[in-house]
Write a protein that binds this DNA or RNA. Structure first.
Lengths: 113, 113
DNA sequence: GTCATGCGCAACCACTGGTTGCCTATGCGG
DNA sequence: CCGCATAGGCAACCAGTGGTTGCGCATGAC
């Protein structure tokens, strides 16, 4: 019953910096490495690297406009990632509930002894 | 509307190896570094390090039994982590829906022109 | 008592995420 | 049209992390 996860996608949204980048891009609609680095405590080059990871995972998309590289979130792909997130959560949830039920049954059994 | 996440907890369950360790521990009820490394493609020492991370995040708990260290999942803490997972998922979900609604409104507006 | 085994510690290596420094290209104002 | 300010790419470097191997220690089994 283990949920199989696209590791590249998961690890892309697993990193706190990358989650923040996605948050900013979603909030503003789009952003450039420079504009994003202005709003984060890391340099433009670091932002560029992380955007590269998100790009390879298909979570964002860049379009060169003049001398800028304008990034946007790929909403469909992010929706896919969110679905995986939820799947893993649900799977663990179910397992935890199953365990709890068993534990309660044991306890009841002991009381019955 | 950004969901704040306990980064240590999140990054603990973010790593695929650690997720697998949790999966194994949940499936078997408990495990030792040696028994776990038998079922994974990494060495006992690597398992030990990862269990250390999970331990520091409070997701597992060890009890020395003889010369073994028996690990078990802390179900309450894992439930907390699962809740965070779901929160982030829900937050992005909501945002994506909001964006989609706006996009549809714009489209409708254009048609009305 | 000896031997096998489960574990911890330390050194080492590769990869990743950050930095700085420098270069290129492009848009814009004189 | 020229020159400058600015967005971005590339490379070198550094710290932290996740993996490895090698070793020593302790403890349970015979």
């Amino acid at each position: 019953m283990t949920v199989t996860v696209d590791d590249e996608l998961w690890s892309a949204i697993g990193d706190p910096v990358r989650r923040q980048l996605l948050d900013l891009l979603l909030a503003d609609g789009s952003g450039t490495p420079t504009s994003l680095s202005d709003r984060l405590p890391i340099t433009r080059q670091a932002v560029t690297k992380q955007l590269g990871v998100l790009d390879r995972a298909g979570l964002v998309h860049a379009t060169p406009i003049g001398r800028e590289r304008r990034y946007e979130v790929d909403e469909d792909q992010l929706a896919r990632a969110v679905r995986q997130l939820n799947d893993v959560g649900r799977s663990w949830d179910a397992r935890l509930h199953r365990i709890k039920r068993i534990a309660e049954q044991i306890q009841r059994g002991q009381l019955d002894d």
